[in-house]
Amino acid sequence: MNYYIEPLKRTFDFTGKSTVKQFWMFFLIENIIVFILGILSVKLGIDNLGDIYLILTLLPFIALGFRRLNDAGYNRWLFLVPLVNIILACIHKKETSLE
């Protein structure tokens, strides 16, 4: 559960570093919560409950993505480019060579 709580605590930290595991565990937990909220919204008759949750967690997710790309050694602004952000978030740190 720390993989979910820690990014929420670091919502406004766009310069630190985050691991691959932390990024994907947050992504997984967030999607599970959205799925559960989607079922609950149908059962309770409350529209867009999952959408509201996604809007509330958008900034922590972007901050986590920025930190992930920073840790991998890429320009963190690439996280805002669709599809590229998911591919780069999977990559481990760049290897630096002295060649």
Rank of each mutant, 00 (worst) to 15 (best):
L88T: 01
S41N: 08
A89D: 02
I86G: 07
I52Q: 11
T57Y: 06
P82L: 02
K94H: 03
G65I: 02
R10M: 00
T96Y: 14
K94Y: 02
N48G: 13
F79Y: 14
G45N: 03
R76D: 07
L56A: 15
S97C: 13
I52D: 10
E99L: 14
T11F: 11
L88Q: 01
I62R: 11
F12S: 12
S18C: 00
K9V: 06
E99T: 15
K94P: 04
Y53D: 00
S97N: 13
F61Y: 13
K94W: 02
S97Q: 14
L28Q: 08
D13E: 06
K21Y: 11
L37I: 08
F35G: 04
S97A: 15
V20A: 07
F14L: 02
L44D: 10
D71L: 08
D47W: 06
S97G: 15
M25E: 03
I52P: 12
A89N: 05
E95H: 10
V81S: 04
L28C: 15
I39F: 09
H92P: 13
L56Y: 10
I39N: 11
L78T: 05
L59W: 07
K21C: 02
K9R: 07
V84R: 06
Y53C: 00
L54I: 12
F23L: 03
T15C: 13
G38M: 12
L49R: 04
I91L: 15
Y53Q: 02
G45P: 01
L98C: 10
